[in-house]
Design a protein around this nucleic acid. Sequence first.
DNA 1: AGGCGCTTGTGAAGACGTGCACAAATCGCG
DNA 2: CGCGATTTGTGCACGTCTTCACAAGCGCCT
Lengths: 230, 230
Amino acid sequence: MARLPEYLRALHNLAETGHETVSSEGLANAAGVNSAKLRKDLSQLGSYGTRGVGYDVGLLIDQIEYVLGLTQRRAVALVGVGNLGHALAGYDGFASRGFRIAALLDADQERVGEEINGLVVQHIDELPRVAAEESIAIGVIATPAAAAQRVADQLVAVGVTSILNFAPCVLSVPEGVDVRKVDLAIELQILSFHEHRKASLTALPAAGGSALTALPGGLAVTESQEAIGT
Amino acid sequence: MARLPEYLRALHNLAETGHETVSSEGLANAAGVNSAKLRKDLSQLGSYGTRGVGYDVGLLIDQIEYVLGLTQRRAVALVGVGNLGHALAGYDGFASRGFRIAALLDADQERVGEEINGLVVQHIDELPRVAAEESIAIGVIATPAAAAQRVADQLVAVGVTSILNFAPCVLSVPEGVDVRKVDLAIELQILSFHEHRKASLTALPAAGGSALTALPGGLAVTESQEAIGT
DNA sequence: AGGCGCTTGTGAAGACGTGCACAAATCGCG
DNA sequence: CGCGATTTGTGCACGTCTTCACAAGCGCCT
Ligand SMILES: NC(=O)c1ccc[n+]([C@@H]2O[C@H](COP(=O)([O-])OP(=O)(O)OC[C@H]3O[C@@H](n4cnc5c(N)ncnc54)[C@H](O)[C@@H]3O)[C@@H](O)[C@H]2O)c1
Ligand SMILES: NC(=O)c1ccc[n+]([C@@H]2O[C@H](COP(=O)([O-])OP(=O)(O)OC[C@H]3O[C@@H](n4cnc5c(N)ncnc54)[C@H](O)[C@@H]3O)[C@@H](O)[C@H]2O)c1
């Protein structure tokens, strides 16, 4: 389930604020989901809370971290140390959430040798050696779109089976390799769509427009968070 | 539909490579989705292709851009010009996809006055004035999680109804305000989950483990892209 | 003009996710 | 020890999304 990491983050927050147990409703609130959904997710997971009491925060954290495979600190290789790559390399949120940036790689000789956050940028051709030394589990692509497919192929070639792609393009990978994409422009465009929809609704409260102007009203967008509490 | 932006990007690619028309199958491939799904999405949209030929690329781009509300170049305010904020401010992919970064805001006096990409960082207290001047449509939050809710409140107070949040926390906003969240650690954790699942499957090909080790096999994660072609 | 191949648009079936509502279980307290 | 308050786990129904499959439509070639 894609919501498990969200629960995990909320649980860590709760643990830091001293809570030892939490009810499904409390955790659901903290994670921004329905309590029934949360209970169903957690029951799928096999972990058990105590009826009448709730869930043991520490136990649940361990359970979720186990299922997510976070018991081992996975090594991440970051390819493309440009504008975005720098920000990612300097981000401490990875380390605190179960990951270790094990290598920074770039094709630009100008960048090779640069040190960021205690790591030295290496040339992309070093990838096979680095992968062997560090047993890279996840590859992050932060290169321009034109280079992304090639980098993906290189990552796959050295045995990486999970890729996080920031370049705005679709990657072709062999079966068994997982790709997740983050595209900021797409996120903005989805927001823009909602803006447009909202504008159309207020401007034309009682239908009337052409098929085109009336259209945006009925479309749905998933994965969004709208209007949670106040 | 959340897939429209993906189609749009693929269409722009096709337009640049000289294609004038495209079949649903061709576009579906380029966007990494099923062709039937794509046709259904496009028919929902009301735009029409020509049977036996396909879709007119230029026309379809116009249609989708209209529905997404990209005919007007929306103004974006970026709050939190730190590690990540710098990368975003320096990113040219926004401008080319229908957006204009209209303001950079930060609470740190040290950062106020700094110029990035032709824009000067202003103090967050200037937000009301900036919003009035630039008619901000979308707010991007790139501050630490602890400040995110406060910033969101400030954005809402000046009339922003769409927020893109990079801070790892859930935001409470009034009804009618849309929030989308991007959390890189969550993306990595989902990949880690898949790694774990794959490892469990190869290690225990014929069941046998405890309930816990057997569990990761049956869980699904949406929004991912797995094994598309080769 | 007619037929043929190709492509769209869509009906229907199935899979999937969501949320309600309630029984079962546990704890605390009298 | 028993009862009530509380909370989990889940059966069920409903709506949505996905995919297949095919009829209808269009253009081209003869
Ligand atoms: N900067 C952002 O905020 C941002 C936001 C969203 C998406 N993106 C996307 O992220 C990607 C990177 O953006 P950026 O702003 O950092 O670009 P950038 O040009 O600053 O950095 C790209 C880096 O990749 C390196 N590179 C190029 N080809 C390579 C190869 N074959 N192997 C290894 N390294 C290679 C370059 O040397 C450069 O250092 C782009 O696809 C962009 O669309 C960036
Ligand atoms: N750097 C990354 O690659 C990365 C990746 C994923 C998520 N994030 C998240 O993005 C956020 C920012 O990360 P960062 O690395 O840029 O942090 P950062 O500390 O480098 O930058 C945060 C900036 O926000 C400013 N700020 C703080 N409070 C503010 C307020 N109330 N109003 C306006 N500005 C305020 C600070 O002055 C600072 O400039 C964090 O929540 C982080 O978890 C960052």
